[in-house]
Design a protein around this nucleic acid. Structure first.
Lengths: 148, 148
DNA sequence: TTAAACACTACTAATTTGATGGACAAAATA
DNA sequence: TATTTTGTCCATCAAATTAGTAGTGTTTAA
């Protein structure tokens, strides 16, 4: 299950991705637009900033913006920061592998094999989905819209 | 994340699937073989029985067996019983749909769309994976082994 | 100097998870 | 029939996680 936190993070990042290039968006604005508790959202944005996906400016007229182009930030990155590995079970994870305490023969474990398949399928979708895809404002779409 | 409970359930069902046709397997045996807490396992088997995947016999020489052929029981069925819907988020679930309280426009929600894709991919794998597949003892494999 | 914004720490209530323990009921067998 | 062995069911529980809230501090623009 995706946590509320990760869901809010995705929504916030999508909101930031709709902004013009360097434009800041304030936590309160995002909170209102996306219907998310403001203080909780601040915690989330802080964590995203510490992980290099968002930049912030303090003080009056401060706010948040994406730290990188929208087409270089994926749902997978955001979810891993908020919720940890995508795999349904640690022994099937690439980014957060951990052996099952109760496992007798990992090589032969059908549960692990299947969960690895699930992880791979989820990763393919989530690591392939960028904020630009989500907002429909990536370079290709823009070009097409302009007619170039 | 798959809960311990669901993982134990899958392991127990795989153990039952390796038994000859109507042969019973006792909770204590499964617990030892699969390295699972016995009392916890009993709770799990009870729930699987109530959901029609397992049958049980009480008293001396009692035990558990699959209630249906191994090639008609899937990982998806087992996981849904133990952990609920496969979708990462309720608004993307087929079997347990629930609207997000904070959602303004569900039709346009990129998070929901993507999570639906993830759900579909996971469901395709898990609903396609039977206990027979997991043990390699389905009819086709048996036939091939015999040379028929 | 003040108001408005992010930064950071601490706390908490509710829920879920992963069990454990014990009384009870059924079935086989001596 | 008495005993033993097994599943059934109910109650309880500790630890972890989730989803926040509150409040103080720090920075910046006006």
């Amino acid at each position: 299950m995706l946590s509320q936190k990760a869901k809010y993070a995705l929504k916030a990042m999508i909101a930031l991705a709709t902004q013009d290039d360097g434009e800041l968006l304030q936590a309160a604005d995002i909170a209102e637009r996306q219907n998310v508790p403001r203080k909780f959202l601040e915690l989330i944005l802080l964590e995203l900033r510490k992980n290099g996906l968002v930049r912030s400016q303090r003080g009056k007229l401060g706010g948040y913006a994406l730290a990188k182009p929208a087409d270089t930030i994926t749902f997978g990155q955001i979810i891993r920061i908020m919720d940890g590995p995508l795999a349904p079970i640690p022994c099937a994870s690439l980014t957060g592998y951990r052996r099952c305490a109760d496992c007798r023969d990992e090589k032969a474990c059908a549960v692990r094999k299947t969960m690895r398949e699930v992880r791979d399928a989820a990763a393919a979708i989530l690591d392939g989905m960028t904020l630009a895809d989500a907002t429909g404002t990536d370079a290709a779409a823009l070009k097409a819209a302009i007619g170039a």
